[in-house]
């Protein structure tokens, strides 16, 4: 099953490679991984989207907790949570397609953030599924380039991951 795991870790050189190395060494999946410092500059927050049986997910949580640089771990999938991903898409936009793509972007509540004679660059935020749907909705030949950040997640309401 798909799980989204959030963790706080020491913002130190090599900390990311300890997590990435753990996943590859033990053969765990990484669907996406995002990391950036938090409001407390000594800490980084990481979101890992992974999948596996319950036993594998339990081991992933335990092994992450075992890393000395990891301060705390939360499996967001254990409760109510929000997920967002940012995508930038550059599409071919000429002739009547310019209007069509603009409309599609509006439907998906995206924004066109860069325009040239023949292209649009669209910014879109949402769940992974929403971003996938947007890409499906646009003719494949028109897509020139896509960049996705991977999923970031946070617990709903009182579910807080903090030191």
């Amino acid at each position: 099953m798909r799980h989204i795991i959030s963790l706080l870790m020491e913002n130190e050189a090599g900390a990311l490679s300890r997590v990435a190395g753990l996943f590859s060494a033990r053969g765990y999946n990484i669907e996406s991984l995002t990391v950036a410092p938090t409001e407390d500059a000594t800490l980084s927050r990481m979101t890992i989207v992974t999948s596996g049986s319950d036993a594998v997910i339990e081991q992933i949580n335990k092994q992450l907790n075992k890393l000395v640089d990891v301060v705390s771990v939360m499996d967001l999938s254990d409760g109510e949570h929000l997920e967002r991903e940012l995508m930038l898409v550059k599409v071919k936009a000429v002739g009547e397609m310019r209007e069509e793509i603009k409309r599609m972007t509006d439907i998906f509540r995206g924004r066109i953030i860069d325009v040239s004679n023949s292209t649009y660059t669209i910014e879109l935020t949402g769940s992974r599924a929403k971003l996938d749907n947007f890409l499906q909705a646009i003719e494949r030949d028109l897509i020139l380039e896509t960049v996705r950040t991977g999923t970031s997640g946070i617990g709903r309401g009182d579910r807080i991951l903090k030191v």
Binding site: A13, G14, S17, R18, G21, A25, V68, D69
Partner: peptide, 14 residues
């Protein structure tokens, strides 16, 4: 050294 030993130490430091 830190990279090579990372999977076989409890922890390491540079």
């Amino acid at each position: 050294a830190v990279g090579i030993t990372r999977p076989c130490v409890k922890h390491n430091f540079l």
